[in-house]
Design a protein around this nucleic acid. Structure first.
Length: 422
DNA sequence: TCTGGGGTCCTAGGACCC
DNA sequence: TCTGGGGTCCTAGGACCC
């Protein structure tokens, strides 16, 4: 029988900040989403103060001030670099691994002797090599490994919990509520409740056919996985991505047409950069602008438009031109907009030869230009070179760019931010 | 004053084909 | 007058994940 491990970093973003500020080790810490909007990571100490996950920052400012909670804006560069370190250590310990998210990986530990001992060894090694504490869940399926991880965070010894033994499952699963199970969100919790299913154990005891009827194949798979029948295997190669999104909230509401247009142009630039990095071209572009979705006006909050291209591209000016055309269609005066973004779909591998007989583009020189711009951006930072269509006055930038008032130094990316040891 | 950003998968229903 | 069986493709929307 297969054995999966799910390794999950504890309060990952907070843990990354703590690595470089050890004095915060026993201190409550939270990390905010982009634009300093919501809490996306919190330590146990912060949780104990009653700070919920995903709460808007402005609602907890009082608690934060009273208890001197350390607050950070998200520093994704730092978290990505720390994630690589953790994953590199894990790869060393168990070669068959699937990186599931920035702070989680599934490992195939089938055939490992002394499973529990090995998991403890892994957790200690990751902490020693990277400074990041992890929890490890063990189970015969991915879903059970996930549940085991949830339990490990509550009662695990040394951050490890093992659900490979059916007798242990019979004791523990009744204590785990449905909505803690991987794949069960708000909607399915309701569906399950209506069927009299409340705990993880209830899911495991249910008839897979019955769950299929109520929730489709997802429900049937969920049920089998909870019974210990593995339906989800370890994915060795990451799946090719199907879309690229770049979007952001503005720091403040915007009614200035030119500023909104330029923010979209910048998103096109960022999205194309991602495209080129993955060696892909896009055949379909969607742009959108959004007003405040928390204010009920009876009007739609999102204004969007799409365009399918005859020739797929990764060339920024091509898509910038399309975006501008679409923007004229969706722009409305006198609406304060809060967010803008672009989405690229119908992604294909880049192929240098012309796509068809009528393709007269000079792809080689297009590519040379973009490669050069990408290189300059990488070496000297964003806005070293820009398209004229994205240029805006310096004064406008603060109103447009997101808030990020608690950003930590770029310890892993900037020489002048390197930590000093005394 | 203030509420993130980036993704995937599944289903149902309609249009259309032979 | 009768009106099967099998299939594909597309889209919108819902559900979920971190």
């Amino acid at each position: 029988m297969a054995t999966f491990a799910l390794v999950d970093c504890n309060s990952f973003f907070c843990a990354c900040e703590r690595v470089f500020q050890p004095k915060l080790r026993t201190h409550p810490v939270i990390v905010l989403s982009n634009n300093d909007g919501c809490v996306v990571s919190r330590t146990k100490e912060a949780k104990d103060l009653g700070i919920p996950m995903a709460v808007p920052f402005f609602k907890i400012k009082d608690v934060v001030r009273r208890h001197g909670v350390a607050v950070f804006s998200s520093n994704y560069g730092l978290y990505a670099d720390m994630s690589h370190r953790v994953m590199a250590t894990l790869t060393d310990l168990a070669p068959a691994l699937e990186i599931y998210s920035i702070d989680e990986a599934f490992l195939d530990l089938t055939g490992t002797k002394d499973l529990w001992g090995y998991a403890r060894h892994m957790a200690r090694r990751v902490l020693k090599d990277t400074g990041i504490p992890v929890s490890i869940g063990l189970g015969p399926t991915k879903t059970l490994a996930k549940v085991a991880n949830f339990v490990a965070k509550k009662v695990g010894q040394d951050g490890v919990f093992d659900l490979t033994d059916p007798a242990v499952r019979e004791k523990i699963l009744p204590l785990v509520p449905c909505h803690e199970v991987w794949g069960v969100g708000r909607g399915f919790t309701k569906t399950l409740a209506n069927m009299g299913i409340a705990s993880a154990w209830d899911i495991a005891q249910a008839d897979p056919k019955r769950l299929r009827k109520a929730m489709g194949v997802v429900g049937e798979r969920l049920c089998l996985e909870m019974q210990g029948v593995s339906c989800l295997s370890l994915e060795d190669a990451p799946a090719a991505r199907k879309s690229v999104i770049s979007s952001r909230s503005f720091g403040h509401p915007l009614q200035d047409k030119e500023l909104v247009r330029k923010s979209l142009q910048e998103h096109v630039g960022r999205a194309c950069e991602k495209l080129r990095k993955s060696g892909l071209t896009a055949g379909h572009l969607t742009i959108f602008i959004q007003s405040n979705r928390f204010v009920r006006t009876g009007m739609p909050h999102t204004h969007a438009a799409s365009h399918t291209r005859v020739l797929a591209t990764q060339h920024t000016p091509d898509l910038a031109h399309d975006a501008d055309m679409l923007f004229e269609r969706i722009w409305r005066e006198n609406i304060p907009f809060l967010k803008a973004g672009v989405m690229l779909c119908e992604l294909k591998e880049t192929s240098l030869p012309p796509a068809n007989l009528f393709d007269t583009r000079d792809l080689k020189s297009q590519q040379r230009l973009m490669t050069t711009i990408d290189l300059l951006t990488k070496r000297y930072g964003r806005r070293t070179v820009s398209f004229a269509s994205t240029l805006i006055k310096k004064e406008a930038i603060p109103t447009w760019h997101m808030r990020s008032n608690h950003h930590s130094p770029c310890y892993t990316r900037r020489w002048k931010d390197l930590a000093t040891v005394r």
